[in-house]
Simulated scan of single mutants.
Amino acid sequence: MTAAQAQFQLDHPGVSDGAAIWRIARDSKVLDLNSSYSYLLWCRDFAATSVVARDERGEVAGFVTGYIRPERPRTLVVWQVAVDEAHRGHGLAGELLDGLTAKVLGAGRPVSTIETTITPDNSASQALFLSYARRHGAGVAREVLFDAGLFPDDGHLPEELYRIGPIGPGSTPV
């Protein structure tokens, strides 16, 4: 058992967690911040494919939001991952990703691929997802999904798609 597993309880988020998730995303200074309303909706509509880490007081210490791609029902898209500043550096983000995978697969979802997007300057996220792939014995394919010119705001870097798989029981890497 890792330190993160011993210290935190992984749980699906509830609507009452939306404000904490929004705050952690805002304070990360790395994530694209969505409206507070969108985090409330996320906790209502995508709780089954998202996970939070609760500290000993039940407070949200980190989160992963995700969803199943409608046109690819075996693909789980990881939208955002963030850990509260007070809890960084202990492997909690990796535990959250592993916990989300276990919860989604344990719920009978036939997920075999994880997708996420990462900007080229976000080395921490790159390391997180490459480490996840190694732990799960999965391959990683990368390509530019959204070129910088597609974004209406100036200075947005391209979003690179990381496709990780296969994952799940009995899977072998590509």
Results as ranks from 00 to 15, higher is better:
118 I>F: 04
76 L>F: 14
51 V>C: 06
57 R>Y: 08
103 K>M: 15
53 A>N: 04
45 D>N: 09
64 V>S: 08
71 E>W: 05
84 D>E: 15
71 E>N: 04
99 G>S: 08
56 E>F: 08
59 E>K: 04
119 T>A: 13
81 V>H: 06
101 T>A: 12
50 S>P: 14
115 E>C: 14
111 V>T: 01
68 I>A: 08
63 F>N: 04
70 P>I: 07
95 E>T: 04
60 V>E: 01
107 A>G: 04
89 G>Y: 09
68 I>F: 05
97 L>E: 01
96 L>N: 07
73 P>L: 03
51 V>M: 04
68 I>W: 07
64 V>K: 03
102 A>Y: 03
106 G>H: 10
47 A>Y: 06
117 T>P: 08
112 S>R: 14
62 G>N: 05
76 L>Y: 13
82 A>T: 00
50 S>D: 14
105 L>A: 02
100 L>Q: 09
78 V>G: 03
104 V>W: 02
65 T>W: 12
50 S>Y: 09
50 S>C: 14
115 E>L: 14
108 G>M: 11
70 P>N: 13
82 A>H: 00
49 T>Y: 11
81 V>A: 07
90 H>E: 08
90 H>A: 07
109 R>M: 10
71 E>F: 05
97 L>R: 06
109 R>K: 12
87 H>I: 14
76 L>S: 12
110 P>I: 07
81 V>S: 07
78 V>C: 08
71 E>D: 02
86 A>I: 13
107 A>H: 02
53 A>E: 00
77 V>M: 14
57 R>V: 02
105 L>R: 04
96 L>A: 10
115 E>H: 12
114 I>P: 01
114 I>V: 12
87 H>G: 07
50 S>G: 13
104 V>G: 00
71 E>M: 01
80 Q>M: 15
66 G>Q: 14
55 D>E: 05
52 V>Y: 06
102 A>C: 03
104 V>Q: 04
61 A>T: 01
58 G>K: 07
106 G>N: 10
93 A>E: 03
113 T>G: 01
96 L>Q: 04
99 G>F: 06
60 V>Q: 00
88 R>V: 12
88 R>T: 15
102 A>I: 03
85 E>V: 14
111 V>E: 00
111 V>M: 03
82 A>V: 00
61 A>G: 00
55 D>N: 10
60 V>G: 05
68 I>P: 08
102 A>N: 04
55 D>Y: 01
95 E>R: 03
77 V>I: 08
94 G>L: 08
69 R>D: 04
89 G>L: 09
103 K>V: 12
104 V>I: 01
50 S>T: 14
51 V>S: 03
88 R>D: 10
105 L>P: 00
66 G>C: 09
67 Y>P: 02
